[in-house]
Amino acid sequence: MTEDERSQESDGSRERGIAAHIFTTSSVMVGLCLTIISVVRSFPKTGQLKTIVDDLIAVGAMVFLVACFLSYAVLRARHSRRMHRIESLADGVFLLGLTILAVACGLFVWTIL
């Protein structure tokens, strides 16, 4: 086995390791989003904000679900090129979900105060 082949093999295992982390974390984040929605709904006097924050967090949960599916596809991919493309997409989708969740939490906290 040449050094280049070993390097590609280690890159593939590293990509699968990152995908495994995205897979587990994004599935936990879906549950966290559902928990946050139930907490937001328990607050009185938030009116229109409640629906905006609920909607943002629900969208975030769907985005995390897509990241979970994409990272699962990386774990199942057999071709290196396809695996790298899907893994990059899973990374971006996961970061989008985190951004949506942070914006929703910021709206909730700064409006309640």
Rank of each mutant, 00 (worst) to 15 (best):
V28G: 00
L95E: 11
G60I: 03
T46Y: 02
E87I: 01
L107S: 03
G106N: 11
T46V: 09
V39N: 13
L65F: 10
R16S: 14
L89W: 10
A77D: 03
L89Q: 09
I52K: 14
V39K: 12
I18V: 12
L75R: 07
A73R: 09
W110H: 10
A73H: 06
F43L: 14
D55E: 06
I18Y: 10
S26H: 04
S88Q: 13
G106Y: 14
G12I: 06
R76E: 14
V39I: 11
S13I: 15
A90H: 09
D91R: 03
T2N: 11
L96V: 08
T46F: 03
F69I: 14
G60F: 06
R16H: 08
L101Q: 02
G31Q: 08
R6E: 15
I37E: 00
M1K: 01
V30S: 02
T46D: 02
G12Q: 15
L32H: 11
V59A: 07
Y72P: 00
T2D: 15
F64T: 04
S71I: 08
T46S: 07
M62I: 04
V40K: 05
L65W: 07
L56I: 04
V66M: 14
A90L: 08
F64D: 03
V63W: 08
M83A: 10
S27F: 12
A77H: 02
T24I: 13
E3C: 00
V63N: 04
T46R: 05
F94W: 02
A90K: 09
A20E: 13
M62F: 08
L107M: 07
L113M: 07
I52D: 14
E5C: 00
C33N: 05
L89R: 07
S88T: 11
L34D: 08
C105I: 02
I36F: 05
L56S: 04
D55G: 02
R85P: 00
E9H: 09
T25C: 02
F94G: 00
S26M: 07
A77S: 15
I22P: 03
R82G: 01
E9L: 09
I37R: 05
E3A: 09
C33D: 03
E15W: 11
L107P: 00
A77Q: 05
D11V: 12
A20F: 12
P44A: 13
T51A: 12
G17D: 14
S10H: 13
R82C: 04
F69S: 10
P44F: 01
L65S: 13
C105H: 06
V109H: 05
A61I: 04
W110E: 06
S88Y: 11
A58Q: 15
G17K: 05
S13E: 15
M1F: 07
R41G: 14
C68I: 06
I52A: 11
T111M: 13
L75W: 04
M62H: 10
S42I: 05
C105L: 15
I57M: 03
D55T: 02
Q8C: 06
L98G: 15
T24C: 06
V30H: 01
S38E: 10
Q48G: 07
A104K: 08
I52R: 13
L56Y: 14
A90C: 08
G92W: 14
I100Q: 04
A61E: 08
T25W: 02
S26Y: 01
V63M: 04
G97T: 00
T111R: 15
